[in-house]
Amino acid sequence: MGLFGKIFEKKSCSICNSDISLLGNRKLEDGNLCKECAGNLSPFFSERRFSTVEQVREQLASREANKESVAAFNVTRTLGGSTKVLLDEDAQRFLVTSSSRWRDANPDVLEFSQVTGCDTEIRETRTEIYRRTEGGERESYDPPRYDIAYDMYLTLHVNTPYFDEITFKVNDYRIERQGSVEFNEAERQATEIRKALAQVREDARESAAAAKAPKMARTCPCCGATTVPDASGRCEYCGGAMNA
């Protein structure tokens, strides 16, 4: 079969077996993926072209299970602007979303302990400004002039099976100058998110370490019994608080 024959060859999705339109194919390492199935993958996943059919099936199953985590997610703190970092501090989980109907969007729900780092990057965009000659032609100024704008991006480094970072733009408005009101607000939001995730990550890891530590028997100051405190730090006999 020639090149053009392969291009117009009818293809089916390796996941759902539906027919794929001419421009709707998303190539996998060993198969094809329709745009509907591709749309169910994590928005932070970027290795689709190098993934096998089995790996995509595993991720889609994980994404389906993620819906239960989204349904149970209880927002206790909201950070950011259009793109938000939502925290469920009671369950020690968070998610990143730019959707106003985020429960319908099925954003990835991650554990605080999965955060491994956080970076801020300022990106500069330079667009040359031209002028018109008497003949109506466009030419550069001498020296060249530029329209300059800045965007602040935050990258969360995370430990997951399907992606290792979440990058999003912090500022909602155009930033024309570093040090401007818009720039300072974006920097404030980025710092707030970075500090919050660093703190909850540390708290989660300390909590996990404490849970793994061997329990030591202590004397209850209320009843004098020697016992191991329960999960809430109370005496099993009288229910009194057993301070360390």
Results as ranks from 00 to 15, higher is better:
residue 1 M to P: 05
residue 10 K to A: 15
residue 11 K to W: 00
residue 15 I to E: 13
residue 15 I to W: 01
residue 16 C to V: 12
residue 16 C to I: 10
residue 18 S to I: 10
residue 21 S to M: 10
residue 22 L to F: 15
residue 23 L to F: 08
residue 23 L to G: 05
residue 25 N to I: 11
residue 28 L to W: 04
residue 28 L to Q: 09
residue 32 N to S: 09
residue 32 N to E: 15
residue 34 C to F: 04
residue 35 K to C: 10
residue 35 K to T: 13
residue 37 C to F: 02
residue 44 F to C: 04
residue 46 S to M: 08
residue 48 R to I: 11
residue 54 E to N: 12
residue 56 V to P: 00
residue 56 V to H: 01
residue 61 A to L: 15
residue 62 S to A: 14
residue 63 R to Q: 11
residue 64 E to V: 12
residue 66 N to F: 03
residue 69 S to H: 10
residue 71 A to T: 12
residue 73 F to N: 08
residue 75 V to I: 13
residue 77 R to S: 09
residue 82 S to W: 06
residue 86 L to I: 13
residue 89 E to C: 02
residue 95 L to E: 04
residue 95 L to M: 11
residue 97 T to N: 06
residue 100 S to V: 07
residue 101 R to K: 10
residue 102 W to E: 14
residue 103 R to C: 06
residue 107 P to Q: 13
residue 108 D to V: 09
residue 115 V to H: 03
residue 115 V to N: 06
residue 116 T to C: 04
residue 121 E to H: 09
residue 123 R to C: 04
residue 124 E to I: 08
residue 125 T to A: 11
residue 127 T to G: 00
residue 131 R to H: 09
residue 132 R to T: 14
residue 137 E to S: 09
residue 142 D to S: 13
residue 144 P to H: 03
residue 149 A to M: 11
residue 155 T to C: 10
residue 159 N to Y: 00
residue 160 T to S: 05
residue 166 I to W: 00
residue 169 K to E: 14
residue 173 Y to H: 11
residue 173 Y to F: 09
residue 175 I to Q: 08
residue 178 Q to V: 13
residue 181 V to G: 02
residue 188 R to Y: 09
residue 189 Q to D: 08
residue 190 A to M: 08
residue 191 T to G: 04
residue 194 R to L: 10
residue 194 R to S: 15
residue 194 R to M: 15
residue 199 Q to W: 04
residue 200 V to E: 09
residue 201 R to L: 07
residue 201 R to K: 07
residue 201 R to Q: 09
residue 202 E to I: 06
residue 204 A to F: 04
residue 204 A to M: 08
residue 205 R to M: 08
residue 206 E to W: 00
residue 208 A to F: 02
residue 209 A to H: 07
residue 209 A to D: 14
residue 209 A to N: 07
residue 211 A to Q: 11
residue 212 K to T: 12
residue 221 P to R: 04
residue 221 P to E: 15
residue 223 C to V: 01
residue 223 C to S: 07
residue 229 P to M: 10
residue 232 S to L: 12
residue 233 G to S: 12
residue 235 C to K: 01
residue 236 E to A: 13
residue 237 Y to I: 07
residue 243 N to Q: 14
